[in-house]
Design a protein around this nucleic acid. Structure first.
Length: 809
RNA sequence: GCCGAAGUGGUGGAAUGGCAGACGCGACGGACUCAAAAUCCGUUGUUGGCGACAACGUGCGGGUUCAAGUCCCGCCUUCGGCACCA
């Protein structure tokens, strides 16, 4: 078989006959299978794309052969930083390079021989798509879920530009090496925190990997506790601190504000002003990972001011320290060195008092004591447990307006403004009279102009484009300015799965009734690196659009699978700079795409991935050639015997064993073990037709089953064999083989006999023998006796059809 | 640092708490051949033994259990994420 030729032949036929066209009139059996769409950065498909898309397509084909009406769209996440950086470097416009890359990738994706529904294709950088991204922004704005506030960005003072975290290397700009500082800008946010609780609760409904759900849970970071109000001594103002351990309030020996806290400037005394300002400037240079490191030496400075502890009116010093983040909780914490590791280290370093207020239930006296216990040195609260006091103290404070029970989430609102060119413009107009005004729907899209100078010089590139910036206020008609920022590309990718099924709709983002029938996605496949951001943002969008009345489901992705990463042969991530990339094309040119896909399925655990090696690819090619020989032999066999002797039963057993396991394995993306079972079936067929008289009808039946089992992983190959064995087009209109459970019941089974958990014998016994009989057989076996003689049999454990364990002493 | 994973023969990888190493690769031996390629058959965790067999063996150290690669506790190493790469 000439793989390259037959692959071309069948792709043409599939196209001409519209074989894979999704049937819009049969939604009863619909399965929406979706792979995370790709970013068109490099021009060509790499092994990772093949691994994700090729094997997901095999899963989709398996569903099709099980009788489902499979919908599997494809598109491109086309806005983003790399194209813009490439443009700055080379002068090639992001639109030109992106569209060129897309067309090359489309061509390659078509040659993969997958069932993609190209009619549904979306490209997020095209106005017919981002028009609706902007529309969603406007809806969020109208519903109070988009708002503006100040937030810090990485700023390179030399390049005069905002840097992505990725562009900051050890605190310095990757382009010029200048030290990066944090600078506040007014930016757009989406209020994902409004949905924190639901995003947390609904995780239980999802068929997702447990680890992914756990990561999202920790990312949302719910903690229940209370807010406590501290007055600033002699100042008249106050601030609140969030704590989960209000029971330790009497042990507070200082409080800490985040360096960015607005009160800091007000309360800092003359004497402390210099050190405080110096400290704030230093902190502005560090990132959050450094700030929150628990192994790093504690740092902080005193503001000179004091706060009043509302529980006992004692004055405690107010410090600022980098480990307190302004973005979490209230941006202020109370310091209880006796019962918190971090506070303990801080107090030790700066000589602050340490007072025990919780005693261990078993008299543990070592500090810091961070477990729950009994209150001491706490006045009227002495003797209460932590659990009781946490609530009681807050309730008492609430009565005098100094506290309240509070639930906090680590999750922060989503910052969506980017001071960049290559993204969807934010559809907002700033009017001197009317303020911030959303662009009305009929004026969308706000088109991204082509002729923009995006070399970095201190402002958003769009701000320099007069034709874009100057506009009229949609409300009052007066002169107004557009928002010069663009949207984070995560915004584009948070709803593309809603656009696919209705991608040609130019009246609305999607037709509500239709999308409610097509969604949610039945199986979503993509990398685990998206666990906390993309997958959370998409869930948020779905819930927000549901609450606006556009959707009637709660979750976008019912079931989720993460494919692993294929690394370079050296075990590192593939990258051009490392020179360890692997080109699928080189292999496909030699072996064809089916062999390549089959190898990707066989050589790795799909969920785990691993370093690339082509050691086994030749073996796969040989195995498939062997299958071809074995299957085509079926055409030559005529007549022969028709009864089912023991050889026939053995072959039938292996056939059904393969069908059962392959079916399960496709469902769990365990392609490697599925292929192992197909190889066993191949071996069994070869052994069966080893010269002696055979049952030709059975042989052919088994061969046809093998073709069907292989079809999802080697679609062209299977189609060709299906035709060569005299069957009607197409194998993909065939039903996947069904297991005959009866053939799997063996007359005899082998069980293991252990004495004190060590294997001493193996017995072949009749299937279904009762436990007492098995026990007797085991105890009387000649090979077992030497190990039990002279000893007392304490217990015998019989696991039916598996083993006997005799415990002696 | 924090959150989440992973660690099994020479190698890729299999194993609902129940025979560790399925299925491959590689290696070794054999058949076919003048020879080679291709193909087919067999052996292959380590150590000891001619052998039947025995002991040991799933990153390290403990523990639970009749039974642990699998469950629990404590480490080590590697990988993913940490909010402007997507």
């Amino acid at each position: 078989m000439n793989n390259l030729e037959i692959e071309k032949k069948w792709r043409k036929k599939w196209d001409e006959t519209n074989l894979y066209k999704f049937d819009k009139n049969n939604l009863k059996d619909k399965k929406y299978v979706l792979e995370m769409f790709s970013y068109p950065s490099g021009a060509k498909l790499h092994v990772g794309h093949w691994y994700n898309f090729g094997l997901s397509d095999s899963y989709a084909r398996f569903l099709r052969m099980q009788g489902y009406n499979v919908y599997q769209p494809m598109g491109f996440d086309a806005f983003g930083l790399p194209a813009e950086n490439y443009a700055i470097k080379t002068g090639i416009h992001p639109k030109d390079s992106t569209l060129k890359n897309i067309s090359i990738m489309e061509e390659q994706l078509r040659n993969m021989g997958a069932m993609f529904d190209w009619d549904s294709e979306v490209k997020t950088c095209m106005p017919d798509y981002y028009k609706w991204t902007q529309w969603i922004f406007v809806q969020l704005f109208k519903h109070g879920l988009a708002y503006r506030k100040e937030a810090p960005v990485n700023w390179c003072p030399s390049c005069n530009t905002v840097l992505a975290n990725e562009q900051v290397q050890e605190g310095a700009c990757e382009r010029c090496g200048t030290e990066v500082v944090r600078k506040n800008l007014t930016q757009w946010f989406f209020k994902i925190t409004d949905y924190a609780e639901e995003l947390l609760q609904d995780l239980d409904k999802l068929d997702w990997p447990e680890k992914t759900k756990l990561m999202q849970k920790n990312w949302i970071g719910k903690s229940t506790g209370g807010e406590i109000e501290f007055e600033i001594a002699g100042h008249g103002k106050s601030f609140r601190a969030f704590t989960t351990r209000a029971d330790t309030l009497n042990g507070v020996s200082y409080v800490v504000l985040a360096p960015e806290h607005p009160l800091v400037a007000e309360i800092t005394t003359k004497e402390q002003k210099k050190v405080v300002e110096k400290y704030i400037a230093d902190v502005a240079k560090s990132n959050e990972i450094e700030r929150l490191s628990t192994s790093k030496e504690k740092s902080g400075v005193w503001t000179g001011a004091y706060a009043v502890n509302p529980i006992n009116d004692k004055q405690v010093p107010i410090w600022i320290a980098d480990y307190v983040l302004y973005s979490y909780g209230t941006g202020a914490v109370m310091g209880v060195p006796s019962h918190d590791e971090r506070d303990f280290a801080f107090a030790k370093k700066f000589g602050l008092p340490i007072t025990r207020v919780i005693k261990g239930k078993n008299g543990n006296d070592e500090l810091p004591f961070c477990e729950y216990g009994i209150l001491v040195n706490s006045g009227k609260y002495d003797g209460l447990t932590t659990e009781e006091a946490k609530i009681k103290i807050i309730e008492d404070l609430a009565k005098v307006g100094k506290g309240e029970l509070k639930t906090n989430y680590r999750l922060r609102d989503w910052l969506v403004s980017r001071q960049r060119y290559w993204g969807a413009p934010i559809p907002v107009v700033h009017c001197p009279h009317c303020g911030t005004v959303a662009v009305p729907e009929e004026q969308l899209p706000v088109e991204l102009p082509y002729d923009v100078n995006f070399t970095p010089d201190g402002t958003s590139p769009l701000a320099k484009h007069d034709g874009f910036m100057h506009t009229k206020c949609p409300k009052c008609g007066g002169d107004a300015m557009r928002d010069p920022d663009t949207l984070d590309t995560f915004v584009c990718s948070s709803w593309y799965f809603l656009r696919y099924p209705d991608s040609k709709n130019d009246k609305e983002a999607f037709n509500k009734d239709w999308i409610n029938k097509m969604l949610p996605v039945d199986k979503y496949i993509g990398g685990a690196e998206h666990a906390c951001m993309h997958l959370l943002y998409a869930r948020f969008f779905t819930k927000a659009l549901r609450d606006m009345g556009y959707l009637n489901f709660d979750e976008p992705f019912t079931s989720l699978v993460h494919q692993g990463t294929i690394l370079g042969a050296d075990g590192n991530k593939m990258s051009k700079s490392r020179g360890n990339t692997v080109s699928p094309d080189d292999y496909i040119a030699v072996y064809g795409s089916d062999v390549f896909r089959m190898y990707l399925g066989f050589g790795f655990n799909y969920i785990e991935g691993g370093p690339w090696s082509d050691d086994g690819i030749k073996a796969i090619a040989k195995w498939m050639e062997r299958v071809e020989r074995i299957v085509l032999k079926a055409n030559d066999f005529k007549g022969g015997k028709t009864d089912m002797g023991s050889d026939e039963k053995e072959l039938d057993f292996i056939r059904n064993f393969a069908i059962k396991n392959v079916t399960d394995n496709y469902g769990t993306f365990s392609f490697n073990t599925a292929i192992a079972r197909m190889m066993e079936l191949t071996n069994a067929l070869s052994k069966y037709a080893d010269g002696k008289e055979i049952n030709a009808k059975l042989y052919k039946e088994v061969c046809l089953d093998l073709i069907k089992l292989m079809a999802p992983l080697a679609p062209h190959f299977a189609e060709e064999l299906w035709e060569l064995t005299g069957n009607e087009y197409s194998v993909f209109n065939q039903k996947f083989p069904k297991v005959n459970e009866k053939a799997l019941v063996k007359d005899e089974v082998e069980i293991v006999v252990q004495v004190n958990a060590k294997i001493r014998a193996k017995l072949v016994i009749a299937n279904g023998m009762d436990n007492k009989q098995i026990e007797n057989l085991a105890l009387n076996d000649e090979r077992v006796k030497p190990f039990t003689e002279g000893k007392q049999v304490k217990k015998v454990i019989v696991i039916p059809n598996r083993l006997v364990n005799i415990i002696v002493c």
